[in-house]
């Protein structure tokens, strides 16, 4: 009887200690969250201020507060300077195409490399992985020359005509980025964890390789598809160098090239912040919608976008 209150006391002390520890950890986490939100807050708040005020507020806390001469003028000016709707649409189309086609093509390649038995498979996988060390910038100029001389079909005056050159099109922004060595590697690694006995059972039932891919491997590989989709989405949305080199028509430009429109003799900082707010929103929406998959994909692949 006498020991009971002490045990109770010890338990309540321990739970109090746990509670305090939790409060402190939450405080630290909230502090970190606020710290990491600073750039975003600065961007949104600055998008509401005129240039002069952004520059005069920048050295203090006012930079993060919507105070002073705030309004939506910068957003209106963005639409005057840049066809922002068109650029957003272009980026959306290019990104969705790269991600969608990439999932199909790379997963099939990964399937062929991990599940099918054929001579030279290891060598091909090695070559695919080796291409990861080649930076895109080193092949950009030869690639431009190459795509400028590829055959193409065009609608011209209501007829389908044969022409040379892929420059200045959507497909030149999409097709070179569909096949992706890292995605192939990721798929092949993930597929190799799925037991081959499932393939064998399906083969006995008369299934071909495509059926095995479509009906067995793909449904079991949701996390791999989510990871690849997320890791492909960000670089596709952020494309800048390649469209700068291959797209001359303003109607086909993506959002990141549009950023340069604001850097004239004196950068229009308010408009820059308004534009970046607009083009960041879709990325934030995607991140919030898929944040669980995003975090696990970063953890799984060890790579951030």
């Amino acid at each position: 009887m006498a020991a009971t209150p002490r045990v109770r006391g010890t338990r309540s002390e321990a739970s109090e200690q746990r509670r305090r520890r939790r409060v402190w950890s939450y405080l630290v986490l909230v502090g970190l969250a606020v710290f990491f939100l600073f750039p975003l807050v600065f961007m949104f708040v600055s998008s509401l201020k005129p240039d002069g005020q952004i520059l005069s507020d920048i050295s203090g806390w006012r930079a993060f507060l919507p105070v002073g001469d705030v309004g939506l003028d910068n957003y209106g000016a963005v639409f005057d300077r840049v066809p922002v709707g068109r650029f957003l649409l272009n980026s959306l189309l290019v990104t969705v195409a790269i991600v969608g086609l990439g999932l199909v093509v790379n997963s099939m390649a990964g399937f062929a490399l991990s599940r099918l038995r054929w001579r030279g498979r290891g060598l091909v996988l090695g070559v695919v992985i080796a291409t990861l060390i080649v930076p895109f910038e080193t092949i950009a100029v030869p690639l431009v020359y190459w795509v400028a001389h590829l055959p193409t079909l065009l609608f011209q005056d209501g007829a389908l005509v044969y022409d040379i050159g892929w420059l200045n099109s959507y497909k030149v922004q999409i097709i070179p980025f569909v096949a992706n060595a890292f995605s192939i590697f990721l798929f092949s690694q993930y597929f190799s964890t799925i037991p081959t006995s499932l393939d064998e059972a399906a083969r006995i039932d008369g299934a071909g390789w495509f059926t095995i891919y479509r009906r067995i491997v793909v449904p079991l590989s949701g996390p791999a598809f989510a990871t690849v989709a997320i890791l492909t989405f960000l670089p596709a949305w952020n494309q800048y160098l390649w469209p700068t080199m291959v797209v001359q028509d303003e109607k086909l430009r993506p959002v990141m090239v549009g950023m340069q429109y604001f850097f004239q003799d004196n950068p229009a900082w308010g408009e820059i912040m308004a534009y970046t707010s607009m083009i960041t929103l879709p990325v934030l929406v995607v991140f919030l919608a898929f944040q669980r998959a995003f975090v696990s994909s970063v953890a799984a692949s060890g790579v951030k976008g």
Partner: peptide, 27 residues
């Protein structure tokens, strides 16, 4: 087995032509 492949191939061809159709040559 051939049907899905044919659909994928047709969709690919249509997509390519559609994307090409948006191109604008600089001649």
């Amino acid at each position: 087995m051939r049907k899905p492949l044919a659909i994928v191939a047709a969709a690919g061809l249509l997509g390519t032509v559609a994307l090409s159709g948006c191109a604008k040559a600089n001649h």
